[in-house]
Simulated scan of single mutants.
Amino acid sequence: MEIRIDDLKGKEVALLLQEHHQDMLDHTPVESVHALDLTGLQAPDVTFWSAWIEGDLAGCGAIKIITTGHAELKSMRTARTHLRQGVARKLLTHILAEAEQQGITKVSLETGTPDSFIPAQKLYRDFGFNECGPFADYREDPYSLYMTKTLITG
């Protein structure tokens, strides 16, 4: 698998992000969907990665800087054609390592609470993320689960 920083200009990435956003809307009320659009993911405080297997887009993910040393994990998504093949684990491993290299000491995330989000919740727990309260501009929301992880740098 090749994981690279992506400029979000490719058609495949746009389609995967569109699928991601639609999936959020299928399981969560619009006011509880916190996925960034293409413009939001192209902001200077965001680093976006895409994962490719033999020329096929397998997944994506990003980090958004919240404050010095604290970033939010955003837009983690595995392409349907690559589900249950370890894409998310490899991508998350890569993103967390890159975050550490950028001097990030804490990574937080927001994911959903409906049953369709259980695989994501399990992945994050497996990586040492623990539940926390809302962070940054988030508020309590029955459709949101907030998690955080301290990175060991040095």
Rank of each mutant, 00 (worst) to 15 (best):
D37Y: 14
D37F: 09
L38A: 12
L38K: 07
T39V: 11
L41Y: 08
L41C: 05
Q42K: 15
P44M: 07
P44E: 10
D45N: 15
D45Q: 14
V46P: 07
V46H: 12
T47K: 15
T47M: 11
T47S: 13
F48T: 06
W49K: 06
W49G: 06
W49C: 04
W52H: 07
W52Q: 02
I53C: 13
E54S: 08
E54L: 03
E54N: 12
G55F: 13
G55N: 14
G55T: 15
L57G: 04
G59Y: 12
C60A: 10
G61D: 02
G61W: 02
G61Y: 02
G61H: 09
A62N: 07
A62W: 13
I63D: 00
I63T: 07
K64P: 08
I65Y: 13
I66L: 08
I66D: 01
T67D: 06
T67Y: 14
T68Q: 14
T68R: 14
H70N: 02
A71E: 00
E72R: 07
E72W: 09
L73E: 09
L73K: 09
K74N: 02
K74G: 01
K74H: 06
S75I: 09
S75P: 07
M76A: 11
R77V: 02
R77I: 01
T78S: 08
T78Q: 07
T78E: 10
R80Q: 05
H82K: 08
Q85R: 14
Q85C: 07
Q85M: 10
G86M: 10
A88T: 01
K90I: 03
L91H: 11
L92I: 07
L92T: 11
L92F: 07
T93G: 12
T93C: 04
H94R: 05
I95S: 08
I95Q: 14
L96W: 06
L96I: 03
E98Y: 03
E98G: 02
E100I: 05
E100T: 11
E100Q: 11
Q101E: 04
Q102E: 11
G103M: 01
I104N: 01
I104L: 08
I104F: 05
I104R: 00
T105G: 14
T105K: 09
K106H: 14
V107T: 03
S108Y: 00
S108E: 04
L109R: 06
L109Q: 04
E110S: 03
G112S: 02
G112L: 00
T113G: 09
T113R: 14
P114V: 01
P114N: 07
P114W: 04
D115A: 13
S116F: 14
S116C: 11
S116Y: 13
S116N: 15
F117I: 05
F117P: 12
F117Q: 09
I118A: 13
P119E: 09
P119K: 04
P119M: 01
A120E: 06
A120V: 03
A120F: 01
Q121M: 00
K122C: 03
K122D: 02
K122I: 03
K122Q: 11
L123H: 08
L123I: 03
L123M: 06
Y124R: 09
Y124T: 01
D126P: 06
F127H: 08
F127D: 04
G128M: 06
N130L: 15
N130E: 14
E131W: 00
E131K: 13
C132K: 00
P134I: 15
A136I: 00
